[in-house]
Structure formats: structure tokens, C-alpha cells
Write a protein that binds this DNA or RNA. Structure first.
Lengths: 206, 206
DNA sequence: GCGCTGAGACCGACCGGTCGGTCTGTTCTA
DNA sequence: TAGAACAGACCGACCGGTCGGTCTCAGCGC
């Protein structure tokens, strides 16, 4: 972030992303990262305090990127429903733009034991809260039905994650197809009418 | 399943479930399981070939239970929409009935490296396929909209998982609340009309 | 009834390898 | 030339798995 442009440090990070994304945390040894980055253990432990720190740093980094992009995009829209909709787009775009980091964030950061798990849940909770807040907003001002926005927020989060995970692994539901499909499904799920859904996405008539 | 009633074996399994659910795979040593179960390493390796085998056995076991319950429940309903609806109920009930196993299945089995990950994805895919098949069925015979059932299936899977995960950790959205909320959200997401949703769940007027 | 035996169930000390992290340098750079 | 940046040998803890041993008990000949 701040001292980001040190080449050695960057090579280490690149190698770490690659390894962590492909093999997971425990199947990636520091020696692997050293080999892939063409550096040395000394270099790694000069730039980073621990293996765990590298990993959590990557997760945090991605979460920050996603949050920044989201808040920026949301701020540019007026109505609640439009905001919800644009957030969904930005979300998928960001996952697509940072595929490897997304894989680490969504998959490799799970099931790593209590310490990691707390961190992961805290970050996920932040996103879920954002979703819920904007769902509430949309409910208040809009004509969509009153629903259990908390559960809806969890459902959305899970739905998005699952679709992205599948894409990350197989490349299969191409974003061009997944995005409109998810928009339909998720907007409908909170009671946005068909006409409204049509209106929201005039450019996706491809 | 077959030789299930050996007491030592069962104590080992119980301890393994507890530890794996709470601490995850890598933070659970065989020694931990030995201590908790009041047995010995010899006993563990007499009954099971490896630590990994114990873990995957538990995952498989839970998946089997869930599949059995699902297919039984689905078989007893006629219409596609009703089937989809009852499957959702059974799913949540089963997760609730086997909380610890559910946590292992949904969380601790993730991010454990390539070998485990393949297994996990294969099992998840089975459930997603079931969902999609019945969504397709419902689309064909019903008046719900034609949608991208594949993506809908992934979305459903993710949505259910996320809600259950939250419940597993915090106990928070009590099943009594989560079930009808999810029914509303998910059925709406595939275009089931409000009246139909009401009709489907006459007993949940509490 | 009684000793013998052998197999199943279980015990726990121990082994061998792995891996995060450290430490003693060496090289580069300002 | 001081200190930052890096190299890589090395350490020690940990942990999955093994292996020789013990205990129990059913079967069996006598």
C-alpha cells in the first residue's frame, strides 16, 4: 500500500498470491514462496513478520479494494434500488479483476482454524452489513416488499460468493452471463418488479 | 454405518467431530482426538487408516444423510414448486439437526488444499445439480418465469449455506425465522408469485 | 475345569520428516 | 563505511504415523 513498490517485496507477494490461491495456506510453505519468487528466506522475513501475516495481508488488501470500489460506485447512484444494483455489478467486476485474490478471499481463507476464521468472519460481516444497509434503504424509499433484510443480506452474500467461486474454478459462468442472471434473481428475491428490473439495466441487452 | 456400534470407535468419532468443528482440520492433532476421546493413538490407527480419512469420512457421512433425507422428502411431493419448497425445509432441518457436522461440511472442509478441495467441490456439485434439476422441473410445469436455472442453483446453494453458517456460529437467525424468510426470498427469486408462496406454507402463519 | 493359544482390541514410546522461523553472515548502495 | 537488503544454513518444535508390546477372551484339546 505505502511501501508497495519494492521489487523484491512485490515478487514475494506475487508468488504468495499464486501459491496461496492454487494450493491453499497449509499446502504452501515459505520455501515454496521463496523458490517461486527467486528470493530467499532472509528476504521474506525481512519484508514480512510471518507467513500468516503475508496471507492475512493479502486478504485485507482485497477486502479494502472491494470496499473502496463499492463505496465509490454506490455514492454515484441516487435511488436505493439503483445502488443495490450497481453494487452487485461492481462486486462481480472486482472479483473478476482480481481472480486470484478473490479465490484466496473466498476459499483459501476459510477453514484455517479459529484465528483466521475470526478475521474472515469479521470481514464478511462488514460486507453483509453494507448489503443490509442498502437493502433497508431500498425498502424504505421504494415500492419493493418489506422483507427480512438481514437474512436477505446473508443470502445475497452467499449467492454471489458461490457463483463467483464456481467461476474462479472453472471460468464457467462468464461474467457477461452471470451478472444479468444474478441481477434478475437477486432483485426479484427482494420483490423488485419485473419492469423495474428491465429499467435498471438498459445496456445489458446484448 | 455398518460397524457403527463399536464404542471406542464411536468415542473417537465423537471427539473428532467436536475438535474438527471447533478448531478445523489443521488445528486438530491426532493427539487432541486421542486425549478428548480417552483412547490412544493405537486405537485411532486401529480403527481408521489416517487422520484425513476420519475427516473425509465425516464429511461424506453428513452428505449422505442430507442426500437421503432430501430424496425421501422430494419423492413425497408432486408438483415441482412444492418439491423445491420442501427440499429447502429439509435442508435447513438437517443442518439444524447435525450442527457440528454441518459446520465441518460447510466451513472446515474448505481451504484445505487441492486434495480436499476437489472432494468438497464434487460433493457440493451434487447438491447443486439436484437443485438445478428440480428448478428445471418447476420451470417446465409451472407458471414461474424462465430463468437461468444453473446460476439460480448456485445462488440458492450459496444463499442457504451462508445463512446456515451464520446460524452455526452465532445461533442467531433461529431456524423458525430463517426458514420462512429464505422460502420467501428464494421462491421469489425464481419468479414464484406471492399467492403461490402463501399457499405453499399454510402452517407457518405463526 | 484347566492350561494353552491366537487373534482382536488397544496402548504409548518413538521415529522421521517437515516447516516456520532465526541467525550469521555477505553484498549492495548511498 | 554504515546500514539496509538479501542469502541460505541451521534449529527445534511439532505431528502424523509406526511398531513392539499388553490385555482380554473365545475356542479347544485333554
Amino acid at each position: 500500500m505505502s511501501k508497495s513498490t519494492n521489487p523484491t517485496r512485490q515478487r514475494i507477494l506475487d508468488a504468495a498470491v499464486e501459491r496461496f490461491a492454487n494450493n491453499g495456506y497449509h499446502d504452501t510453505s515459505v520455501a515454496d514462496i521463496v523458490d517461486d519468487s527467486g528470493t530467499s528466506k532472509g528476504a521474506v522475513y525481512f519484508h514480512f513478520p510471518s507467513k500468516q501475516d503475508i496471507f492475512l495481508g493479502l486478504v485485507d488488501h482485497f477486502a479494502t479494494i472491494l470496499e473502496d470500489r463499492l463505496s465509490e460506485a454506490i455514492a454515484q447512484e441516487e435511488s436505493g434500488v439503483r445502488r443495490v444494483n450497481v453494487a452487485l455489478s461492481v462486486c462481480l467486476e472486482t472479483f473478476a479483476a482480481y481472480k486470484k485474490l478473490a479465490k484466496i478471499f473466498l476459499i483459501q481463507a476459510t477453514g484455517l482454524g479459529t484465528v483466521f476464521e475470526e478475521k474472515r468472519r469479521e470481514i464478511h460481516k462488514r460486507f453483509i452489513d453494507v448489503i443490509q444497509r442498502h437493502l433497508d434503504e431500498a425498502v424504505q424509499e421504494g415500492d419493493l416488499l418489506t422483507i427480512d433484510t438481514e437474512i436477505a443480506a446473508y443470502a445475497w452474500m452467499g449467492a454471489i460468493n458461490e457463483v463467483v467461486i464456481e467461476w474462479v474454478y472453472t471460468g464457467h459462468p462468464e461474467p457477461a452471463r452471470a451478472l444479468p442472471a444474478l441481477q434478475n434473481i437477486l432483485l426479484r428475491s427482494i420483490g423488485v418488479s419485473e419492469e423495474q428490473i428491465q429499467q435498471l439495466d438498459p445496456n445489458a441487452n446484448k
